[in-house]
Design a binder for these strands. Structure first.
Lengths: 241, 241
DNA sequence: TAGTGGTCTAGACCACTAG
DNA sequence: TAGTGGTCTAGACCACTAC
């Protein structure tokens, strides 16, 4: 547990962090379970409890763990609420967060097109699952979205299986994919003719396009999502801190 | 430096934080200057250096300070680059961050309208400075924005004074207003007829509307900004972590 | 060389949870 | 009561900066 200073110097707690991250990635501790106590980890890695704490504190700030005084340190899980609060930024004009409801229009399996190849780092010929769905807020259609997933990772998703509202929970519980980050590109575009009916709008209406790449804990881009949002009664919230 | 446990228990380092925050707010240490060392602060407040460190670390994470090993802890400043990286999220389609250039169309001083009163927490009759400007990227007009500021805070801004590109630097250096946070509401709207010429677009074109409230270190909403962005060659970047 | 922040340790005590 | 994370201390040494 050391490296000679100078060129490759990494603080002890950083080294501990990557050792612990490995265990999270290889499934030693499945989501929801608790880690050994700081004392035990310290003994095991041969460092002081304070050093373990520094590593765990940083990883907690990165949303990998949740710590509860008196109870322990837990692998964070995508609960429905967390998914929504963290990754769903469409808010009603009155400031309320509505719970979205989803209706799948179709699921197809096909070869990735150029754009999907780029967004998901796929090779020519790789296959994807392509899901199209409408999301409802307050019982009205507000978001039309197309979701692309590499078949390699999410092989049987959508086959004989209801696609629930909070996909990120499914990714985690069934495919061991932990979405930790999303990169969204937003623009205003005209609603396309073939999409208009799904949102109950006329073709050409300005809608908010959200192009999202979801990044997993291991840095892979695991999902590409293209959404069109009717922003007459809703807005996209972005907080810069 | 203590409070009886139980009802109002606050850890020592939290108490230290608010004491230090006070000094930042009352101008004891102007932006850019350095704080006393951890040792000195510890002596002064009668706590250990580790407790001071914990307070400063948290405040550094909140962008209040910048710490430099071997040099010291400094009050953070809005440099032009920081302003842009932090608060300017319009990116060119090729992924490059362009430096915006601004041209002021007009500056007026008037009574705050209802919306301004709401966004800036003003009373009926309070006055505002209202700035309208176009921002250029790669020498083409891309953003049209209207900025409203309470006259009470920014009395003489814009009077006989060039309004430079990075307003947040001016707020900080000339008005002791440190913008720490921005809340943005985004939607897609049709470009209004009277705005079309400024962006070289036809009326009705979909544009991205950004409604931004800027919040200062002392939690006041100090600026309201309504922008319209032509997102044909640019997009708004939002990262959810 | 002196001074700063950054890391690491060892140990004490506190607050919270659960049996 | 025992075990967990949270706070606080005191002290050592390291890395970086400036003189």
């Amino acid at each position: 547990m050391s490296s000679s200073p100078g060129l490759n110097y990494q603080p002890l707690y950083k080294q501990i962090k990557s050792l612990i991250l490995q265990r999270v990635l290889d499934g030693t501790w499945p989501p929801g379970t608790s880690l050994p106590s700081e004392q035990k980890l310290g003994k095991e890695f041969g460092v002081s409890q304070g050093t373990i704490r520094k590593a765990l504190d940083e990883m907690t700030a990165e949303n990998i763990f949740v710590r509860k005084q008196g109870k322990g340190t837990f692998i964070s899980q995508h609960s429905a609420t967390r998914s929504l609060f963290h990754f769903f930024h469409i808010i009603s004009n009155d400031g309320k967060r509505a719970m979205p409801d989803s209706k799948v229009i179709r699921v197809i399996r096909t070869r990735a097109n150029k754009r999907e190849q780029k967004k998901l780092n796929l090779k020519n010929g790789d296959k994807v699952i392509r899901i199209k769905r409408v999301r409802y807020l307050d019982n009205k259609p507000v978001i039309l979205e197309q979701i692309s997933l590499a078949t390699e990772i999410f092989g049987d998703l959508g086959k004989d299986q209801e696609i629930r509202n909070t996909l990120y929970e499914i990714y985690e519980s069934q495919y061991e994919v932990k979405v930790m980050k999303a990169i969204e590109h937003l623009r205003a575009v005209r609603l396309k003719k073939e999409d208009a009916a799904h949102l109950g709008l006329t073709s050409g209406t300005p809608v908010l396009e959200i192009d999202r790449q979801a990044i997993a804990l291991d840095k892979r881009a695991v999902e590409w999502r293209l959404s069109y949002v009717d922003t007459k009664n809703y807005y996209y919230l972005s907080e810069l801190t």
